[in-house]
Write a protein that binds this DNA or RNA. Sequence first.
DNA 1: TTGAAAGCGCTAACAA
DNA 2: TTGTTAGCGCTTTCAA
Lengths: 341, 341
Amino acid sequence: MATIHDVAEKAGVSVATVSRVINKIDTVSLKTVEKVKKAIDELDYHPNNLARDLRRAESNRILVLLQSISNPFYATIVKGIEDVAQKHNYSIMLCNTDSDLIREKNYIDLLAKKVVRGAILLDSEMTKDELNVVAEENDLVLCCEYKQGVKVPHVMIDNYLASKTVAKHLIALGHRRIALIAGDSHLSSTKLRYKGYVDALQEAGINTDENLIYNSETSSFKMGMRAMETILNTENRPTAVFAMSDVLAIGAIKSINSKGLCVPDDIAVAGFDGIEFAGVMNPSLTTIVQPSYDMGCIAMEMLIKEMKEDAKNNREVIIEHELVIRESTVKRFSNIKSQIS
Amino acid sequence: MATIHDVAEKAGVSVATVSRVINKIDTVSLKTVEKVKKAIDELDYHPNNLARDLRRAESNRILVLLQSISNPFYATIVKGIEDVAQKHNYSIMLCNTDSDLIREKNYIDLLAKKVVRGAILLDSEMTKDELNVVAEENDLVLCCEYKQGVKVPHVMIDNYLASKTVAKHLIALGHRRIALIAGDSHLSSTKLRYKGYVDALQEAGINTDENLIYNSETSSFKMGMRAMETILNTENRPTAVFAMSDVLAIGAIKSINSKGLCVPDDIAVAGFDGIEFAGVMNPSLTTIVQPSYDMGCIAMEMLIKEMKEDAKNNREVIIEHELVIRESTVKRFSNIKSQIS
DNA sequence: TTGAAAGCGCTAACAA
DNA sequence: TTGTTAGCGCTTTCAA
């Protein structure tokens, strides 16, 4: 591996000049730039980022922490983050925590170790206080999830309102027994969505039935299936189900089908997130579409701002969501044609 | 941020001794170790990895390059890679290339820049020769895709055989007009799967019909839909479709349904990969299940071996696949119950 | 068992 | 416009 010294020697200049050329500092004469570039080419020289970062006491890497990359919803967010990062010459380091706090803290340590310059957390298991401690010394942004009192910029939808909208939609369709498949109870979004569901029911004069609520700690197909099985085994079966993620909803539908029941005829199902698959599956899934790609972009932009500025802030961006009504809750003519298998 | 010097001063020892304690070199007396540890605790000292890596001229980060994280098939592989990496104290850096060769090469540069220690490529767009040049100087492993003549360890399934199995399955069901939705033509797996399809047909005395073959350069739902639309517009419609990925297959089914046709009654559909969703969707999807998690684990283990050893090798691991027959190709009693929407 | 000191490859202040 | 030089924080050789 050629170093900056080799280039300097070959070009007959000092290392400082080579450094200037590499970093596009325009106090170097055109002729010298040419010489240096030639030497760089001939030696196939690549600057060693390790050394550069050490010297500058910073890295250009960003940590993105999420529970599991397997959820397509997160995949889209990450895409947004990565696109913006790339544009600003940052590279991202994606890490799965598996909802394991220890594992998460290990990754968070990368901040203190200066391996990464900042971090975007999608669904942290840390408490408000733990987050504030980390934020004290590091540049952090939260995406999707925000805990009250955390002094960190964050972007998300209005989870309470979105959830209420879904519940109201189901109520408007005439449902009174609406089951809820909730998500990870550590997440603020879960709590907000739960409240939205309860309030919507209450406003419609419906009491919540504990038998119709299932708490699934992770968001996966299997969890959705298991949750639905449990719910279907209750005495007074619901006529509708609201799952707090599309992945859970899809699992629930599978479970409903395997009991010989139909969606939406026997049981209506609504999801949350708006993964691409929700529109492609059969029946297509009614869901809250979160602008995941945009959320990723905004989160990364916030982080860049955060890293540039000295002052800490806890700017909040609430982004628009949309209830997209599809076949899984409403019987439509097009359904008849779609799939009779 | 405390440095090693601060710790040394506080503990009343030299930096070398502190370094020894950090790196668990056992020539340090117990008493000294205690003193140093106490100082480390009190100062909340974290070694700076940047400096360590620079000194050791290596990093413990691994680059994982793939076209798009959005494909759930890759998500599972990455999970395997990450789990093994974590166990061996490596961290992974995941990067999307978007099938863009320029972007891919930018990431590959991280190897030369010593930002990463090695790389696992899932679906590189580089040619055989380009790969060999990179492999010359760096530790590389290929996962899923392998180009003949590349001197790099690799793990994958027997794509030719798997594809042939799918085609044979469809032929055995009585289909003679079997459409093919192919994947990225740069990938060797695409070529092998194509050959498997052609050979199976040929052995059954069926001529391939160019009108029934669609080349989709990326693997996405939308691509699958578009491909199927085109195929459905041909004069003599196929009775079965073989898509080279589950994601493509799912898009194809959507497209078939939107034309008012049924799967598998009007058209049977088979996929490839074995993403979790294939078993959950409706109708459930017949597919080749690749042991994606295991493939990820093996790839990472190969890379660790590669990084430890001086000698280059091009060890090949062919891992077992499985044809899982589900509702999308075979009419079964359970189907009648499942979904009439 | 410990310390002194060189140096990994680079940047940036300062001097020329 | 360019060069000299002092480190960034760490590991490791050599000497004590």
